[in-house]
């Protein structure tokens, strides 16, 4: 299943809810304000690293760039996709859950 998260983990609990309820083997895509969670050196980095042992985490490049965050700041293992990649993720997974 593809899970999208569009909220900053420093403001809302959407990412936490997602990480708690996404099963191993999920794809998690951070979009909109959610992209700020993908940066190295934050208080949630270890949670993401742990999640990536069993699931994949992606971040939407256009939203990252819009917020002045460069790809070299991402937590290791997080993959950048564009909107086409977002569409592919939605198509590849059997269903989509949006953590708003």
């Amino acid at each position: 299943m593809l899970h999208t998260v569009n909220k900053s983990p420093f403001e809302r609990n959407s990412l936490d809810a997602c990480l708690g309820l996404a099963k191993a083997g999920s794809a998690i895509l951070l979009i909109e304000d959610g992209v700020v969670g993908a940066i190295k050196g934050t208080t949630i980095e270890s949670k993401l690293t742990e999640t990536m042992q069993s699931s994949k985490i992606y971040v939407l490049g256009p939203d990252l760039a819009a917020r002045g965050l460069s790809e070299d700041k991402l937590v290791d293992g997080i993959q950048v996709v564009d909107y086409g990649g977002f569409v592919d993720l939605a198509a590849e997974n059997t269903a989509v859950q949006s953590w708003l």
Binding site: N6, I31, E32, P62, D63, D82, Y83, F86, V87, A90
Partner: peptide, 12 residues
């Protein structure tokens, strides 16, 4: 941003 995101997704 929801409508912008949705539009860009739809176009893609």
């Amino acid at each position: 941003q929801a409508s912008d995101s949705a539009y860009l997704f739809a176009k893609a």
